[in-house]
């Protein structure tokens, strides 16, 4: 087996990511509606912006896919004219990198719900780190900052963790995942003569 992603893997990842890029753009307008409500209600839906990485990884199950997907989704969002501009690219890289690290720690061998949730939390952590530099959130008063963190944390677990996991689980029933996943030893065993 040759290492690295094949053309097919890259293309499938990027197409999935661009599809999520469109959702990211639409999500921006929902975010505006939630923002004036104050008290960080908007942070509850922030987690949607981390979903591309876990979904792409759970579909393709290959190294590097989560990072590529999150960068591609961010670039898609950027090209379609996100009002956040270049911010999304910087955030996308950091969020993708953090999710990828989680999958790497599990040696790209775990595809269950807990690893998806862990990746979501890692992406959340990455975005918070970026916010300290970009949004100066460290200067918020303590109660407000904790509210902010808790809201974003809950949102990430729900959207990027649980939703991503169930989405892929339903997608598996359509059979499309067999097309793009690497063959496992189980597949070889089925080919053996009984």
């Amino acid at each position: 087996m040759k290492k690295g992603l094949k053309l097919s893997d890259v293309l499938v990842t990027i197409v999935i990511a661009v599809a999520f890029g469109i959702i990211y753009i639409l999500w921006g307008s929902i975010y505006y509606f939630a923002k004036p409500l104050g008290l960080h209600v908007d942070q509850l839906i922030y987690g949607m912006w981390f979903i591309a990485g876990p979904v792409a990884f759970l579909i393709l199950r290959k190294p590097g896919v989560a990072l590529l997907a999150e960068i591609a989704a961010a670039s898609g969002e950027f090209f379609l004219g996100s009002p956040w501009g270049l911010t999304v690219l910087l955030y996308g890289v950091v969020q993708g990198l953090f999710a990828e690290l989680v999958f790497m720690v599990f040696r790209y061998k775990k595809f269950n719900m807990s690893v998806a949730v862990l990746a979501a939390i890692a992406s959340c952590l990455g975005s918070v780190l970026m916010d300290f530099a970009y949004g100066e959130i460290g200067a918020l008063s303590t109660w407000n900052l904790s509210l902010f963190m808790i809201a974003r944390f809950i949102g990430s677990v729900f959207f990027a963790g649980l939703t991503a996991y169930y989405l892929v689980k339903v997608l598996e029933t359509t059979g499309v995942t067999n097309l793009v996943r690497p063959v496992s030893s189980k597949d070889y065993a089925e080919l053996d003569q009984k």
Partner: peptide, 30 residues
Amino acid sequence: IKAYSIPLLSGSIRRAHRIAVAMEAKRFTD
């Protein structure tokens, strides 16, 4: 959400896979 996202995603993945196969068949190299 399910009725929209699943067919859209699976359709896109299938199409992307087909495009990749076609590109490689036409000797796309890296």
